[in-house]
């Protein structure tokens, strides 16, 4: 978390520098959080080359690289947040939360729950790793990736459907299941609010894999803190950070959430597929099938998603 005090002069200089980086055409096809990650990685990789210029009188004279880094990152987050927060608010407002009522057997005020979900996610955005992992969730929801796959899952009525309805015992229709998955994916990165500090950021598809005991503990802790969210949603959200290979009792929604956020982590909707290449989602899922143990995915789920992607040329 970066909570350092930044003076106005430094902020203006950093802001001008960051604005020009974000406006670079090379980053045009990236989502807000993907773009942010690219800039952070760029600053990390090129620190040695950037430091002499950035520590010159024109920028941050006499500052160490750590100090410069903190200023730049704080301004980068602020710049990203200017567009990201309205985007998150918009995404949450579009999710129909009536499934909370089914799960809790209690009426739910959509507006207040929306507000509380927003606040939780905003709190999470102060943590680096949460921002990295949230990227996939936002992309998956924004580009209807969850929606289109869930529609096919319900139409086919095979393994995933069985896992959702019979094993996880979710008495939810297609739309409710889609909404539950969306909320699960949005809450999933909040595990980093509880994870030990100093975790090294990796450019992996799905961040870290946690022990299921830890994810369950985090879920129970969150249930206490936010009772307006159904228990199943928190369990699913937090357990999506655990490996199915380690714990076979992980909820189907958690397993799906894990797969979708990872799939959309580096997804670029505008990317042009080369002639001779397979489709983006089919390619990703097939690689995931080969590495399912490594990431802790459910192979049967991947097989079904692969068939869906192949049949629909996704």
């Amino acid at each position: 978390m970066y909570q350092m005090e930044i003076n106005e002069s430094d902020k203006i200089k950093a802001s001008s520098f960051i604005q020009r980086l974000t406006a670079n055409p090379a980053l045009k096809s990236y989502s807000l959080l993907q773009r942010e990650e690219q800039i952070m990685q760029f600053l990390t990789v090129n620190a040695r080359q950037l430091f002499p210029t950035l520590s010159s009188p024109a920028f941050f004279a006499g500052r160490s690289w750590d100090e410069i880094w903190q200023v730049l990152i704080a301004v980068l987050y602020e710049t990203t947040n200017e567009d990201l927060l309205p985007e998150i608010r918009n995404i949450i407002s579009k999710i129909d939360l009536t499934f909370f009522t089914f799960l809790k057997n209690d009426s739910v005020k959509q507006e207040s729950v929306n507000k509380m979900l927003n606040e939780m996610i905003l709190r999470g955005l102060k943590v680096d790793q949460t921002r990295r992992v949230l990227s996939g969730a936002l992309t998956a929801i924004k580009y209807d990736i969850v929606k289109k796959f869930i529609r096919e899952v319900y139409r086919r009525n095979k393994y995933i459907h069985f896992e959702l309805i019979k094993v996880e015992r979710l008495k939810l229709g297609e739309k409710e299941a889609e909404n539950m998955l969306s909320v699960t994916m949005l809450l999933r990165p909040l595990i980093y609010l509880f994870a030990p500090q100093g975790t090294v950021m990796k450019n992996t598809a799905n961040g870290h894999v946690f022990l299921s005991q830890f994810t369950k503990n985090v879920a129970h802790s969150m249930i206490q803190k936010a009772p307006f969210v159904p228990e199943q949603v928190f369990l699913s959200a937090m357990n999506s950070n655990a490996s199915f290979a380690e714990d076979r009792s992980i909820e189907a929604t958690a397993r799906m959430s894990n797969i979708f956020t990872a799939m959309c982590r580096n997804y670029k909707p505008e990317i042009k597929k080369d002639r001779g290449a397979d489709t983006a989602q089919k390619s990703w899922i097939n690689v995931a099938r080969k590495n399912y143990r490594f990431y802790g995915y459910d192979i049967k789920m991947l097989d079904e998603l692969y068939n869906i992607a192949a049949d629909n040329s996704w």
Binding site: N24, A26, T44, V45, K202, N203, V287, K290, N291
Partner: peptide
């Protein structure tokens, strides 16, 4: 491809060549 994916996931250091943003930019 699966091997490359695992290798990237385990990689500790970021490779400048893998970034879209270059120093020249």
């Amino acid at each position: 491809l699966p091997m490359k994916d695992r290798s990237l996931a385990e990689e500790e250091e970021i490779d400048a060549d893998s970034l879209e943003l270059k120093m020249d930019d």
